[in-house]
C-alpha cells in the first residue's frame, strides 16, 4: 500500500511541479533591461573603490597598510611615505580591480574612512591593465559616506594642529610647570 501511496504522491508532486512552471510561463518577466534602464543601487552596495578626502581637502589615506593586509585577494598595494610636514601618505596606491572581489573588507578595516566602496560597478574594458587603478584614479574630491570625519582630529598626533588642541585632548603637559 505504501508503495502505491508513495507512487501517487510522487506523481502528484511531479504534476504539481509541472503546473507551477506552466503557471509562471504566463507571467511577465521581472528582469530589468540594463543598460536601457539602470536600477538605482543602494549607497552601501559594493563596487568600485575610491579614496576620499578630509573635510579640509587633504587625502585621508595614511597608508597604514590595513586594507592591504586584510584584502583576501591581495589586490591592494601601496607605499607609505612621509610628507614634508610629517603627514603620512601613500606615495603610490594601487588597486588591481582585475583581482578585487568587492568584499568590502578594506573599507571595514580603514581607520580613516579613506577607502570606500561605491555603487559604480561599470569598469569593464578590453585591457586588463586598465583595471589596475593608481592613486590618481582612485582619489575623489569629497568625503564619501562621511564628510565630517577627520582622522587627525582624533588621532592624538600633531598634524592638523598642535598637540592638545584636538577632540578630547588635554593641553600638553608642561614639563617645567610650577604647578604641582
Amino acid at each position: 500500500m505504501g508503495t502505491i501511496k508513495n507512487l501517487a504522491e510522487g506523481i502528484t508532486a511531479l504534476l504539481k511541479g509541472l503546473a507551477t512552471t506552466l503557471k509562471i510561463l504566463s507571467r511577465k518577466p521581472v528582469t530589468e533591461q540594463y543598460p536601457e534602464y539602470r536600477r538605482p543601487l543602494p549607497a552601501r552596495s559594493r563596487a568600485v573603490i575610491v579614496l576620499t578626502r578630509d573635510p579640509d581637502g587633504e587625502e585621508r589615506c595614511v597608508a597604514c597598510y590595513l586594507c592591504s593586509a586584510v584584502c583576501p585577494v591581495s589586490c591592494i598595494s601601496m607605499q607609505s611615505a612621509e610628507r614634508e610636514d610629517g603627514r603620512r601618505y601613500p606615495r603610490w596606491f594601487r588597486i588591481n580591480f582585475a583581482r578585487c572581489i568587492y568584499c568590502g573588507l578594506c573599507e571595514e578595516a580603514c581607520p580613516t574612512l579613506a577607502i570606500q566602496l561605491t555603487p559604480n560597478f561599470e569598469t569593464s574594458g578590453r585591457d586588463i591593465l586598465k583595471l589596475v587603478y593608481e592613486k590618481e584614479d582612485l582619489l575623489v574630491n569629497h568625503g564619501g559616506k562621511n564628510n565630517e570625519y577627520n582622522f587627525y582630529k582624533r588621532a592624538g598626533v600633531a598634524m592638523v594642529g598642535d598637540k592638545g588642541t584636538q577632540i578630547n585632548e588635554d593641553k600638553p603637559v608642561d614639563l617645567k610647570s610650577n604647578l604641582p
Binding site: G156, V157, K163, N168, E169
Partner: peptide, 21 residues
C-alpha cells in the same frame, strides 16, 4: 575624561619621539 598629551622632542637622526603613546 580627556586624553593627556605631551609635546615631543627631537631625539636625533635615529629615533622618532611621540610621547603621547
Amino acid at each position: 575624561g580627556k586624553k593627556r598629551t605631551y609635546n615631543d622632542q627631537y631625539l636625533g637622526v635615529f629615533v622618532q619621539h611621540e610621547m603621547n603613546r
